[in-house]
Design a protein around this nucleic acid. Structure first.
Lengths: 347, 347
DNA sequence: CCGTGTCTTGCATCCGTATGCAATGGTGTC
DNA sequence: GACACCATTGCATACGGATGCAAGACACGG
C-alpha cells in the first residue's frame, strides 16, 4: 500500500520537478536524475519504477537546468544570411534533421546586413551553444567570426574565410568548375562566359579562377566575365543580357543555379536564343529547380548529404573544438549533365 | 589606485561569471545582474562602470542561468515540416528576423513523417520554450499538437486544426479563392479546374470549397478537381496533364504557387498549350518564383509580413498563452494579376 | 536635529539538475 | 565468520544569475 499518491493540484502551472517526483516516490532527487541519465549508476528496477511514475505524472527533465549544471546545451547555433537562394533552406533542413538525429537542436541566427551584427552575435555567445555552424560568411568578416565563435566549437559550411581560424566543409569548387569547363569543351563550345555572384567570396573566387584557368588551358575564349552582384534570379537575367549585348558567347557558366535559372530564361525569352542550340548554360549546386524539365540545368551537384554528415561528425567527435587544428574538408561533387548544355541525341 | 586588475589566466576556458566580475570590481553579484537588467534599481554610474568593465574582461551574462532563474527562455520553438515549398523558408526567415528584433531566438524543430514525432516533440517540451509557433500542422494531429504545446503559449500559422485548441493566424483563404474565381470569370473563362495539394488540410479545404462554391455561383463549369497529393512542382505537372487528358479546361486554379509553376510548365511544354491564351493559370501564396517573367503567375498574395507581425504581437502580448481564449486571425491578402491568366493589352 | 521617504546596494536564497563522495547493503572468498 | 569488493543510493553542493528583503545613504520638511 505504499503506492505513491499523485497530487492533482492542477492549479500549479509550473511543471513538476525532479525533487517533487523524488519525494512522491520516496527516493532522492539524485535517483531521479540518474534514472534519466543513460549509463548512470542506478538499479534497473529503480530506474524503471521512476521512469514509469514520471510518465504517469508527466514529468520531463528540465533541459535548462541540465544545461546549467552540465554546461552543455545540446544546441547548435546555425548562422545564416541568405535564405533567398533555395540551396540554403534545403541545406538547413537536412542539417537540422541530422543534428536532431544525434540529439542536437538548431538555434537559428538569421543575420542581415542591415541589422546590427554585434547584437545578434552577442546572443550567439550568451546562449552558450555547443557549436556554431556558419552557413553564410558572406557578410561576416574573419575578425567578426573569430570573435563570435571564440572559445567554442565552430565550423563553416560552403565558405572559407582566410583569417578566421575556422575549420570548414566545402564542396570541391575547383574540380566542379573544371568539370563544367571540360564539359563545355567536349560539347563543342569555344566562346564561353562566366557570371559571378558576390565576387569577393571565396566560393566565387574558387569557382571563377578554376573555370577561367581551365578555359585557358583548353584554349577556349573567355568572352565575358560579369559580376551579377548578388545570387538571385533577377541578377542572373541581367547578367545574361549583358553578355548578349556585349557580343554573346556560346556557353555561360553561372556561379550558381539560381543565377543560371534567371540567365536561361532571359536568354530564351528576352534574347530569343535557343538553349542549348545557340548557347549552353550551366550552374552550380543542383537545387531542386535545376531538375525541372523547363530548366533541365546542367550543373555541378554539391554533395549536400556528405557535407552535412562530415559537419555533424566533426561536431560530435569534437574535431572542430577550439584548440584543435583547423581542418578544411573538400568533398567531391558530381557533374550533372542536362539539356541546358547539351542536346541529348537519344533519351 | 583601486583600479580593478584584470586576471589574465587564459588557461581557464570557462567564461567569466557575474560573481567573478563583481569580486574584481568590489561590488556584489546582484549589482552586476542589475547592471544588465533594464529597468533594475541601480545607480547610473555604477551601471556604466560595470558595463564598461564587463566589456574589458569580455563578460557576457550566461543566458542559460538567466533562463533557469527567470523561467523564461526568450526562445520560441518553430515547428516546421515541409521546407520544400519555398513559401516556408521565406516565411521562416522573416519570422525569425522579427522574433530576433524583439529579443527572441528561434529554435527549429524540423519534423518529418518518418522520424518519431514523440521524441522530437518531447524535446520541444523539455527546452521550456516560451512559445511554440507551428508552421506546418500537416502531419500533426490535433491531439499531438495539444500534447506538445500543453501549458505553453502556442500558435499556428497558415493552418487551422480544429481539435487542438490553438490560436492561429492565417490568410483569408476564402476571399482569396473567391477572388481567383472572380478573376477567371471576368477574363472570360468558363470551364475551370481546381488542383489540390494535400486534400485533407484545412488550408486546402478552405481554398477548394470557396473556389468551387464561387465557381458555381458564377455559373462556371468545374471541369475537373484533381488531388496532386503533395505540394510540389512535379505534382503540379502531373495534375495539369491529368486535367488536359480529361478534356481540359480554360483555367486552372492550383492550391499554391509551386503546384502552379509545375502545371504551367507542363501545359506549355508538354501539352503544347498557350498560357494564357488557351488556358489561364493561377496559384496561391505569391512566392518569389511567381514574379519571374517566365512564370508571371497570377496568384493571391499571402500577407506574410502582416501574418508575422500579428503572430509576434500575440506572443509578445501573451494573447496566445494558455488560459486565454483561442483567437483565429484571418488576414486579407491581395490578388496579383500577372500574365499567366490574362494577356495585358497595354503594358 | 529628527522623522519620513526615496534611491542604492548587498545578503541570502531560489531556479532544477548533475555529480563527487561517503554510507549502505549484499556477495564472494578463504 | 571476517574481510574485501562492488553495486546502489543519498547527501551536499555546484552551475550562474535573479530577486525579495532589509540595511544604509541621502535629501527634505518641520
Amino acid at each position: 500500500m505504499d503506492k505513491p499518491e499523485i497530487p492533482d493540484d492542477k492549479a500549479k502551472r509550473r511543471p513538476i520537478t525532479a525533487r517533487q517526483l523524488a519525494r512522491m516516490l520516496g527516493v532522492s532527487q539524485s535517483a531521479v536524475s540518474r534514472a534519466f541519465t543513460p549509463g548512470a549508476s542506478i538499479a534497473p528496477d529503480l530506474r524503471d519504477r521512476i521512469k514509469q511514475f514520471a510518465e504517469e505524472v508527466d514529468y520531463h527533465p528540465n533541459a535548462i537546468a541540465s544545461m546549467l549544471s552540465k554546461s552543455r546545451t545540446n544546441i547548435v547555433g546555425i548562422v545564416v544570411s541568405d535564405m533567398q537562394n533555395p540551396f540554403y533552406p534545403a541545406l538547413i533542413e537536412k542539417l537540422s534533421r541530422s543534428l536532431q538525429r544525434v540529439g542536437l537542436q538548431s538555434l537559428l541566427f538569421n543575420i542581415t546586413k542591415g541589422s546590427n551584427l554585434e547584437e545578434q552575435l552577442s546572443a550567439l555567445r550568451r546562449y552558450n551553444v555547443d557549436a556554431v555552424i556558419i552557413i553564410s560568411a558572406t557578410i561576416l568578416s574573419g575578425q567578426t567570426l573569430r570573435w563570435a565563435t571564440e572559445g567554442r566549437a565552430a565550423l563553416l559550411i560552403n565558405r572559407v574565410v582566410e583569417d578566421a581560424d575556422l575549420s570548414c566543409v566545402i564542396c570541391d569548387n575547383v574540380a566542379g568548375s573544371r568539370a563544367i569547363a571540360d564539359h563545355f569543351y567536349e560539347t563543342g563550345r569555344r566562346r564561353v562566359a562566366y557570371v559571378s555572384g558576390l565576387s569577393h567570396t571565396t566560393t566565387n573566387r574558387e569557382r571563377q579562377n578554376a573555370f577561367v584557368t581551365r578555359v585557358a588551358e583548353l584554349g577556349m575564349t573567355l568572352c565575358a566575365r560579369v559580376d551579377a552582384g548578388e545570387y538571385s534570379y533577377e541578377a542572373g537575367r541581367r547578367a545574361a543580357m549583358e553578355i548578349v549585348e556585349r557580343g554573346g558567347a556560346d556557353a555561360i557558366f553561372f556561379a550558381n543555379d539560381i543565377l543560371a535559372a534567371g540567365g536561361l530564361d532571359a536568354l530564351r525569352e528576352e534574347a530569343g536564343l535557343s538553349v542549348p542550340d545557340d548557347i549552353a548554360v550551366a550552374g552550380f549546386d543542383d537545387i531542386a529547380l535545376a531538375s525541372w524539365p523547363h530548366y533541365a540545368l546542367t550543373t555541378f551537384r554539391q554533395p549536400v548529404d556528405e557535407i552535412i554528415a562530415v559537419a555533424v561528425g566533426m561536431i560530435e567527435d569534437g574535431s572542430c573544438y577550439p584548440g584543435r587544428p583547423i581542418t578544411i574538408k573538400r568533398l567531391p561533387g558530381e557533374l550533372i549533365v542536362r539539356s541546358s548544355s547539351h542536346r541529348i541525341s537519344d533519351s
